[in-house]
Design a protein around this nucleic acid. Structure first.
Lengths: 320, 320
DNA sequence: TTGAAAGCGATACCAG
DNA sequence: CTGGTATCGCTTTCAA
């Protein structure tokens, strides 16, 4: 329609070579009139790149993962890359399956958020596609993975409680097979030990990173008869559940019992009282992941510094 | 490697025609050894279908949209279609831009969750790709859009309050340019009128569907000196903010003031007290959207019934 | 600066 | 049942 060859159109659109002014005009007119959009699929087939980044999350409805995904999305914005998001639902098999789906679609890179797959599996996958991961320590030619320092975050939380005079501090744990949960428990234990606070096994209750788990844990804690002036919950959701259990028993927060969470979900700013918690900068993490995978795809060396969790003091803790 | 033509491999993989047992074996061996995965991009180019469904959301971090997305994802599961998610951030221009990106990637269908684009724009877009939308009433050859009955949901909420003896009911509105927000306000007004409760303009405070908006609204409400025994918030986030504002003033919920929300986010089950609210079955909506777009792609006629919002009574309201 | 032509990896029609 | 061949829409030499 513009009276030129396809090659010329391609060159104009990609800026691959100079195109004379009159042809440029003609081409742009035709594009306008035809409502033409290049077929990315054909481009991909030719170039071998889909300009798509696969994101494997574990949940589409979790505020925790959502923040990280938003960060990745933000980093991809304006780069010509689009995110293809799939969820593994915390199930190794499903994760592997969804990743195959991404690879079949020829994603140029993969961002993996947590999960239960083995590190070796990921390493093997990285032969097929560059990968950056969050929630695991990975280093390789086409792989990079990092964690936040959950141990230190937990230490900070407990230090805070201890500094305010708390000695009987209960802990509601996360899933024992989750590395972050384990690190947080270790931080709790070690900090108590550091301050020579006697360990009371009854003060550690099992949880599962969910509100209902936190609620049930507090009921067990209360039933055990063991005294505690503060609760450190393995994550914010757990803290929400704990807070509700306390409310049901008429136990005031923070007047009767102090509560500290972990993650700093958006909503933690608006709980009653606003929750003191350890902030994980997930959006920031997501951005770094997004930028990292792009750098890796370009074949440039990547230098990443890992952000730190920080204690956010709000109103759910009081001094004893 | 299997000593057969590409055509035969294609036939085997797609079950398009019978393939003799020995060749089948040879092909499968080769696939195994080569770690071969069909290049979906090339398939797409040939078939003209990307086996991808574009989802336009407005926020990656909102529990409201997350539920709907999870529903779509669930409906797509096992169908061979994968979701490509982009966010418009409540900005018409950005929405249009992100949709172009999806179309350039040749998505086979589009799921649009809310947004600020004009219906006409969407109708025009539907010439290029089939579209199902949530949050707008659309009917067309390759378009289908529906809303939940926000008006009725709001009526139910206010009826509940009135039935329990509340007369001075404050309302915290949503963005005035948001159709759901408008419908909820209308439901509030009409229900009061129906019960011959005098309209008190001071009892309607502006909000923006966010926690901070709810918090500020309650402060203004309190400052106005106008008495109210209950607050109906245009959405749950607003209710959270309202609840915190009340807490800061030492006003108990529900003893001093009752609070009702709208949406029924997950976390509303664990606020203190658990929030009475109007439930929008977003996951269900997402599933229907996912199934609908698939039906539409197959060219089958679609018959959709729209689910209803329902009042979920929890503990943030008391009888007067 | 431009066009012709080859080719990316599949599918589908046509013979046989 | 199977192979050859054209084709999908684009990018990229190679010549002109």
């Amino acid at each position: 329609m513009a009276g030129v060859s396809a090659a010329t159109v391609s060159r104009l659109l990609n800026g691959t070579a100079k195109v004379s002014e009159d042809k440029r005009q003609a081409i742009e007119d035709a594009i306008e009139r035809l409502n033409y959009t290049p077929n990315v699929l054909a481009q991909n087939l030719k170039t071998g790149s889909s300009r798509t980044i696969g994101i494997l999350t574990q949940s589409l409805v979790s505020g925790y993962f959502a923040d990280a995904m938003a960060g990745v999305d933000d980093a991809l914005q304006g780069t010509g890359y689009a995110p293809l998001i799939v969820s593994g639902h915390w199930h190794a098999d499903e994760e592997a399956e969804r990743i195959e789906l991404l690879i079949a679609r020829r994603v140029d890179g993969l961002v993996i958020l947590s999960g239960r797959m083995k590190d070796e599996q990921i390493l093997k996958l990285s032969q097929r596609v560059p990968i950056v991961a969050f929630g695991r320590d990975l280093r390789g030619a086409r792989t990079y993975g990092f964690c936040l320092d959950n141990y230190r975050g937990a230490c900070d939380a407990v230090e805070h409680l201890v500094a305010l005079g708390h000695r009987d501090i209960a802990f509601i744990a996360g899933p024992p097979d989750h590395r972050d949960a384990v690190a947080r428990l270790a931080g709790y234990r070690d900090t108590l030990a550091k301050h020579k606070i006697r360990r009371q096994p009854k003060l550690v209750a099992a949880g599962d990173f969910s509100e209902s788990g936190g609620l049930a844990a507090v009921e067990r804690l209360l039933a055990s008869g063991q005294h505690f002036s503060a609760i450190f919950a393995a994550n914010d959701l757990t803290a929400y559940g704990a807070r509700l259990a306390l409310y049901r028993r008429g136990i005031a927060v923070p007047d009767d019992v102090s509560v500290v969470g972990f993650d700093d979900l958006h909503s933690s700013m608006y709980t009653t009282p606003p929750l003191t918690t350890v902030r994980q900068p997930l959006f920031d993490v997501g951005q770094r992941l997004g930028r990292a995978i792009l750098t890796m795809i370009r074949g440039e060396p990547l230098e990443l510094e890992v952000p730190q969790p920080t204690l956010v003091v709000r109103e759910s803790v009081r001094a004893l």
